[in-house]
């Protein structure tokens, strides 16, 4: 294939991925609507004492009998109708398919341009979607962060929206690199930033859902240690905790690259400054989670402040502020 065929194939794959994400969103939305109706009905049954409820009360449990069903601590109701869980499963599989298509699109793009495919806003966005979708699917497969299943609709919607923006507003044809971007540190620095960004995005979605759920639970007067809000918060914390060292690495790699190309490793360029602001907000978040009086709601807001700084760095700085990094090409 010639490079222009690769470019065309890449664009088509990204378009398909976008469509698949939208389908996933629909499937997940219907699934979750049906589930919450099912849960309301099941709520009546919840008041009856049951063996499950007893085993679920951690800390006062004696259990050797493995014959009892696993207690459900993660918020997904085991009582929902089989059809609805199937819709959720289909939606999640579609997300996986979307990821495969996105990655294929990225690979084809790399083949078309003859370089790593992350060096302008269009490519950052597409690779970023792949990164956060991968982060999401990995986290959702782990029992401790399974609660993120509830965030699937939003994740799918965000992926579809980002790809839509990429294909319309940010689109740039595949081409070679301008010389200052031609560096191994670029590959490392940007790749790390994108991976961290993917995890930050998943964490931000979980944090928003956590805040929403917190309000809902407060109104209803629930709020035990195993509440749904709590599990969402834990999922967000896991995402941020993995992302933070990766982001730190991205900033250090960026400093090394800057030293290599401009002779100084830190110069308060707007891009650098916002990377620093992002870093400091997430450091504040990690502290808050270990500080009485800051855990929970306030901490989530700090995490979201970090995400806003990250987003502004990616979008706002490129478009409105400029600086040395502005050659990234909008």
């Amino acid at each position: 294939m010639t490079s222009s065929t690769y470019a065309l194939v890449s664009d088509r794959l990204v378009l398909c991925a976008m469509v698949v994400y939208v389908l996933a969103m629909l499937s997940l939305a219907v699934g979750s609507a049906l589930t919450s109706r099912g849960r309301r009905r099941a709520a009546v049954a919840d008041r009856l004492p049951s063996a499950v409820a007893l085993t679920a009360a951690r800390g006062a449990t004696v259990t050797v009998d493995r014959g009892l069903p696993e207690p459900d601590l993660h918020g997904s109701s085991p009582r929902s109708a089989p059809g609805t869980t199937r819709l959720t499963a289909i939606g999640t599989s579609l997300l996986g398919l979307g990821l495969v298509l996105t990655v294929a699109g990225i690979v084809a793009r790399g083949a078309a341009a003859g370089r790593v495919p992350w060096s302008n806003m269009y490519e950052f966005t597409v690779v970023g979607v792949a990164a956060f979708m991968a982060a999401y699917l990995v986290l959702v497969a782990r029992p401790r962060t399974r609660v993120l299943l509830a965030a699937g609709v939003w994740i799918a919607g965000a992926a579809g929206l980002f790809l839509g923006l990429a294909l319309t507003v940010l689109y740039t044809p595949a081409a070679g690199l301008i010389p200052v971007l031609d560096s191994a540190w670029l590959v490392i620095h940007v790749a790390a930033a994108i991976v961290a960004g993917g995890l930050f995005t998943v964490g931000a979605v979980a944090s928003v859902l956590h805040l929403v759920q917190l309000r809902r639970e407060r109104r209803r007067g629930v709020g035990s240690a195993s509440s749904r809000a709590e599990t969402l918060e834990q999922a967000a914390q896991t995402a941020y905790t993995i992302a933070f060292p990766i982001w730190t690495f991205a900033v250090i790699a960026g400093a090394i690259w800057a030293e290599n190309s401009w002779g100084r490793y830190w110069g308060w360029d707007p891009k650098e400054t916002w990377a620093f602001i992002t870093w400091v907000f997430y450091a504040a978040y990690l502290h808050a989670q270990a500080t009485a009086g800051w855990r929970g709601k306030k901490a989530s807001w700090l995490g979201l402040a970090g995400y806003l700084a990250f987003l502004f760095n990616f979008i706002g700085v490129n478009i409105w502020v400029g600086g040395l990094h502005s050659y990234a090409g909008v």
């Binding site: 110069g267 308060w268 400054t273 602001i277 400091v280 504040a284 502290h287 800051w294 402040a305 502020v321």
Partner: peptide, 27 residues
């Protein structure tokens, strides 16, 4: 608690310099 507050403050204090041009900054 002070650490969290100071970190949040540091992040906010860094904002204006990224929106206004700065002296002695390379770009």
């Amino acid at each position: 608690r002070t650490a969290v507050a100071l970190l949040a403050l540091l992040a906010l204090a860094a904002v204006p310099g990224s929106l206004l041009p700065q002296r002695n900054v390379a770009s």
